[in-house]
Design a protein around this nucleic acid. Sequence first.
DNA 1: TACTGGATTCACT
DNA 2: GTGAATCCAGTAA
Length: 183
Amino acid sequence: MVPLPHSWFAGDTVDLARKLLGKTVRRGDCAGIIVETEAYTVDPASHAFHVTPRSAIMRDTYGYWYIYFTYGMHWCANVTTDADGIGAILIRAVKPTEGISLMRRRRRTTLMQNLCSGPAKFCEAFGITGKENHLPLGGDFAIYDAPKIQSRNIEASSRIGIRNGTEFPWRFYIKESPFISHR
DNA sequence: TACTGGATTCACT
DNA sequence: GTGAATCCAGTAA
């Protein structure tokens, strides 16, 4: 398998969020296929909406991990994007393929569908914490290329953008996958 | 320095 | 469907 090159993440955030579906994410002995993503650009729901030290990585980099802590107990993993603008893609759900026994121990469950079917579940199963924040993709923690997913197999939900009032795609997931978090 | 709320998950009803 | 767990970044003073 070939890791996605750094330049792959320089493009448009929403476009890349769709293209990330089907790719393999690997950290150490654990790997899985990305089945659900969420695009964050400049809108009130994004950390990048406010100019702060935490969100600077979304403005200044692409192809880096942005890991943040939320609700006092959960980690969420993003990939920064867009060489010219501001963006990050939250990895929301993954289909486990390797290191499943390790994921089961970390998640304290044997249910396959419960291992990585949520952004914080994915981080717990893969052992991702704030130590990985601000690392470039590659090496022990990278995303690998894979055949393109047919668009008819991709579902997108949308919301209203603040800039022009039109709807824009936001969350992408593989239709009928039992491993997505989307209800 | 103190306060507020959150890109979530899970147990419980 | 509802609420608790839990701590950090951001904000206001």
